[in-house]
Amino acid sequence: MFAYTIRRILMLVPVLIGMSLIVFFLIRAIPGDPAQIILGQQASKEAVAQLRDTLGLDEPWYVQYFIYMKDLLTGDLGNSIRTHAPISEEIWPYFAATLELSLFAMFIAVVIGVNAGIISAWFQNSWFDYVAMLLALIGVSMPIFWLGLMEQWAFAVEFRWFPTSGRESILNPVDSITNLYIIDTIIQGRFDQLQTVLRHLTLPGLALATIPMAIIARMTRSSMLEVMRSDYIRTARAKGLRMFWVVYKHSLKNAFIPVLTVIGLQMGLLLGGAILTETIFSWPGIGRYIYDAIGFRDYPVIQSGILVVALVFVTINLLVDLLYAAIDPRIKYQ
């Protein structure tokens, strides 16, 4: 198991190198000169040329890439062209904002989605099953930016139950320690702020939870239906076990592997930064960070931001694979 984990981590290296190469060339294919954009349209040719030289943009591409990789190995993600700050320091608050939102959304999606799927399978063809699966179908087909806007309009503008946007109250900002505000407010004992933070999380969290919730519910239902027909479920019932335990103990653990796969994939997508949702709710997340960097031709931020997102995605996949073995003893990694 340990050797397998190490091997999998080593296998991430070529994936990330490939990823960095693709990003490196793609952003250079975007028209527009960073130096020109930074200095503005009125800047003199000489000023632009000098800035290009300072930024190293005059070097051949392979030299640029080599310098970039050399810096990466020392943990240096480069400096932002726009803010001049080191990206490795700058990126964390944005990433933390996305991480918190994604975990919050995924928590909602798993709790509701898994239970809805279980109950739908348990009472197959009941009204609950029909309603839940109809809602799930609507959920997977819903354009999320539209759902976000409607939520905002209904619950923030009309009813004023939740704030329209942002992570925290501007008048009462959170002192960030970890930048995960739920944790920050709890360790500081600021439960008034915790409440505000949770209220800010609710609408974007619900919008982001919709698709994963719907997919998880459908996957749980079909997987549970298959498991509940199996012989060992009959054995569990023949022992005299309550249906509740037959379902939640004996069936769920067996049915969970495909559900876990879906959770992992969806979590990877959420952590990649849901740009539309983050834009609608002015969420200062990684998606917004990269999106703004593209507008500014901030090459180092785009490169490193995408690399971080890719790293997170493959790490989650690795975690999911390792979790399989924890759930099902028949799965062994050598």
Binding site: Y232, A238, K253, I327, D328, P329
Partner: peptide
């Protein structure tokens, strides 16, 4: 079930919960 009347099944390979 299980206490007064118990049952064993045809398929021992699949009748025990694998996890």
């Amino acid at each position: 079930r299980g206490n007064d009347i118990a049952m064993i099944f045809q398929e021992p390979m699949t009748s025990l919960n694998p996890v």
